[in-house]
Design a protein around this nucleic acid. Structure first.
Lengths: 151, 151
DNA sequence: CAAAATTTGTTTACAAAGAAACAATCTCCC
DNA sequence: GGGAGATTGTTTCTTTGTAAACAAATTTTG
């Protein structure tokens, strides 16, 4: 009878509780939070790592393409790349091909660093969704890929 | 041979392409982007709406509990609630019970507004994931709920 | 019961991300 | 070839969200 809600479990989300967009926002926040609890200050944040990983696997990729694939806006990408350049991770090159564009490559030093970062990053990623069964987890991954429009 | 990646579809994500955390970040960005394309400036942003919706369904809920459920940090919640109060959507009340806490309720005017906002909000939410079959979509919703630890 | 520790919310200072305006280059089409 | 329009990246300004230090109230504990 009109008792104020005192614990998060008692909160009635109503239709919000089955709204996909809402659920995904929650999921992402949860993953991000646990990432910092567990991986802590392992120097590279998820956003930075994903940028570096994609550059590792696609040397010479253009800034615009990188941004499209990772859904990072141009203005923000400029800042990210500059920061990574300042840290000596990447180098930029203007192709003769199209002198507006910028091609990004890992520096020789960074190649090994990023591979190593991949070790713990994917170890963490593999632990995401461990409250699901293996089958469910795989199903979820597949559905997410289809949802996004990958593969 | 060594041709720079020119289109997003050609980008090789390698293991990142099946990493759940990464996929969810992408999914959420995609949903958010489409939200603004389609719903545009329908006055209420997703974050604001979800706060108001939860207050509607849990009158007198405490700020801290609201934050826990929606994964919004205390500092940020303070700002959100104050903004909503300035717009006349919510009122705050200090319970005798615990004079540190704040109980939030919708103003009488806001109740109808939020119900109406629910109309278009959930219409949009229902359209999320329409590139999946109905069965897949339902499966995805269920897996997401389990993943998050709901229900 | 009183001091210590915890919880709740606010404030201030900062980081992450986006929007809009801009400059440079390139493409298209007459 | 030469302008109109599109693309690419940068800059500046604003929004959104977090972190850390704080104040007030509450709970715990010796």
């Amino acid at each position: 009878m009109d008792m104020p809600i005192r614990t998060a479990d008692n909160v009635d989300l109503d239709r919000l509780g089955t709204a996909l967009g809402f659920l995904m926002r929650l999921a992402q926040l949860k993953i991000y939070e646990r990432f910092f609890e567990e991986v802590g200050e392992h120097q590279l944040k998820p956003g930075e790592f994903s940028v570096l990983w994609v550059i590792l696997n696609n040397p010479g990729i253009r800034q615009s393409v990188l941004g499209q694939r990772l859904m990072i806006k141009r203005a923000h990408m400029t800042k990210l790349i500059r920061a990574l350049e300042d840290q000596g991770f990447v180098s930029r090159r203007i192709p003769d091909d199209d002198r507006r564009a910028v091609e990004i490559t890992l520096t020789p030093d960074a190649v090994e660093k990023v591979r190593q970062a991949g070790e713990w990053f994917f170890t963490y990623e593999d632990s995401v969704g461990s409250n699901l069964s293996a089958a469910e987890r795989q199903q979820l991954t597949g559905l997410m890929r289809k949802f996004i429009g990958l593969g």
